[in-house]
Nucleic acid binder design. Structure first.
Lengths: 175, 175
DNA sequence: TACTATGTTTAGTAAATACTAAATATAGTA
DNA sequence: TACTATATTTAGTATTTACTAAACATAGTA
């Protein structure tokens, strides 16, 4: 069976859509990234409409999300009023960007809320109550875990920035 | 302001629900885990119904998902026909379990599909076509990235199993 | 200024998903 | 066997979320 390039590319885009869905993101996001990733040149919004089958509105908002997490970059050509979009090809850069972006997210709001819970428990009056103590210990353990993960993030980002380690090379060497 | 234990616990469970939602999971899952995590003793299905406000049906299915990824354990007492559920408190164990479980998921199906795309491209007839070449390179780069992440997973799991490293201690030391 | 090409927002719809209520299955016990 | 206590499945509903179509905004150009 010989498969033509266009079909292959469509399958690829479809796979990225499903991966996107798996992570709880709109499948359109995966599709947009997929199309851009396989395009040798940056694409305009209208070209994305054509190639993804989504509408301008949808692409407008989803491309913004993609740009926010660093998976897509927006650019414009001189003397051309269109915006152009292209995929980030350095996935490690994208991961770092995502980790940085995370700060403002709902996720971190919830994590901060756990930290506040812990403060209240620690300052609290119920220290003689065994139930209170138990809750305190459990919440503290979860907070420690969050902190540990956070430390790892920060450490890796920092060490890489300083040039002490190169995650890409380490991962490559492990293969 | 003094806050009573019950309110504190409810806030905590609410935070876990939101974290759950953030990761694209039902918020009920987070709530169930939260309630179990704050309970000194394993809870029965009916007790979970009472404390989460969900119905038996919902809890039945979601507790199974939680058990599948190793965040919750099911047990039964002798001479008691109820099942009892308790939270995994070793989050590192849970992460390892999740990484292992991942194999059968939709996510890996999609990732495998990318690998197949790559094979087709590599075996393909279009090697003289520059577009074909470009697509091949891009898909290969993404596949390399997936492989790298996978290698890291496997390496960490293996090294830890062998006792050469202790992720928990490393993370702890980084704080 | 009016016109055109573009991007964004909005209001509504379609689709997916979580969840409920009730029927069904299962297994222990009399 | 029938009965009881439990868990699971199912069919339907409510909610959420992605997406569409169209109105609107913006900025460049004649």
């Amino acid at each position: 069976m010989t498969t033509d390039l266009q079909t292959i590319q469509q399958n690829f885009v479809e796979s990225l859509s499903q991966i996107s869905r798996f992570w709880g993101l709109p499948k359109g996001m995966g599709a947009i990234f997929g199309v851009l990733y396989l395009s040798p040149a940056p694409l305009s919004l209208d070209e994305l409409v054509e190639q993804t089958g989504l509408t301008k509105g949808a692409i407008s908002t989803e491309v913004r999300s993609l740009a926010r997490i660093g998976l897509v970059h927006r650019s414009s050509k001189l003397g051309d009023r269109k915006d152009y979009y292209e995929a980030e090809t350095d996935f490690y850069a994208a991961i770092r960007s995502i980790l940085r972006e995370r700060q403002n997210s709902e996720f971190d709001r919830a994590v901060r809320s756990v930290r506040e819970t812990l403060s209240i428990l620690e300052a609290g009056s119920g220290s003689s109550d065994p139930d209170w103590q138990f809750t305190l210990e459990r919440v503290r353990a979860l907070q420690d875990f969050f902190d540990a993960i956070d430390s790892l993030n920060k450490a890796v980002i920092k060490l890489e920035k300083l040039g002490f380690v190169n995650v890409q090379k380490i991962l490559g060497a492990l293969k």
